[in-house]
Nucleic acid binder design. Sequence first.
DNA 1: CACGAGTTGTTCGAATTTGAATCAATGGTT
DNA 2: AACCATTGATTCAAATTCGAACAACTCGTG
Lengths: 154, 154
Amino acid sequence: MDGTRWLDEREMRAWRGFLAASALVNRHLDQQLKDDSGLSHPQYEILVRLAAAPDGELRMTELANGLINSKSGLTYQVTQMEKAGLVRRRSCPSDVRGVFAVLTDAGRARLEAAAPGHVTAVREVLVDVLTPAQLDALADGLGEVSRRLREQGG
Amino acid sequence: MDGTRWLDEREMRAWRGFLAASALVNRHLDQQLKDDSGLSHPQYEILVRLAAAPDGELRMTELANGLINSKSGLTYQVTQMEKAGLVRRRSCPSDVRGVFAVLTDAGRARLEAAAPGHVTAVREVLVDVLTPAQLDALADGLGEVSRRLREQGG
DNA sequence: CACGAGTTGTTCGAATTTGAATCAATGGTT
DNA sequence: AACCATTGATTCAAATTCGAACAACTCGTG
């Protein structure tokens, strides 16, 4: 007995497209960032999130949530970035266990230097390839997909 | 002077959605596969591609193309899978350098055992979350994105 | 105040990934 | 036949990833 609902052709095309694009786009952008700014994609994302946060700082846990990395992976990356002078650690006054990752001036400068090339690459491989309707479908559909996975996992 | 065309809100939502979904879906499915069948996502993909190929075999290079892994990563995975009895290597008669990865009976059985749970998970987190229109947008849009990255890189 | 459950971030070991270097073999050209 | 640029796959060291175990701490409850 096999009650599995297999994917029909439309579904399979969507799934394969998503899977392939996911791998290829990530790969391409990681390469572009490394060549262009010496940052890995995860590191770039950390800088972006910090830059968007008030005072350019976030708790390690907040940074780990909704990010590619696991907790330990984040510890590793922040350590690397601290060595490179892009962020520094600050312990939380109200909770001794807590640690803030703080964007340094050098980190902000590095992000601003990297951003134009990165955005251009994102346009090239994804955004400018899609129609407005497809952009909306991605935003709505994949936004919902992410939302569900986030709250299920959290 | 800054001629960068930054992303507007619609574009940013699409990009963020894609990025987050890409990471979260991959992560979730890798976890599901490991728990359920002891296969990593890359390994599962290798089995799928081999199963779809004539005689269940492909050259290493063919297998590496359009796959997540680099060449050396593929060598590693195939070695692991060979140890596990899921594939075997066969040298190419017409080109001594060439190597085929061949799906074994055990490999095919393992794939068939893993597939229902995997497809169900793919539905749960992605396919059944999207509307038919969104599925088509993913298939068309991301299909085109992948196609371009493939031929650009190859 | 003492206790215990839950949280926070790090450390640890193992597995995986990558790019560069390597080795061997092919094919075309002279 | 000799040469040389390419190709196919592996090996190697280094970087990165993950989960599990850990240590330190907070908070609510008794």
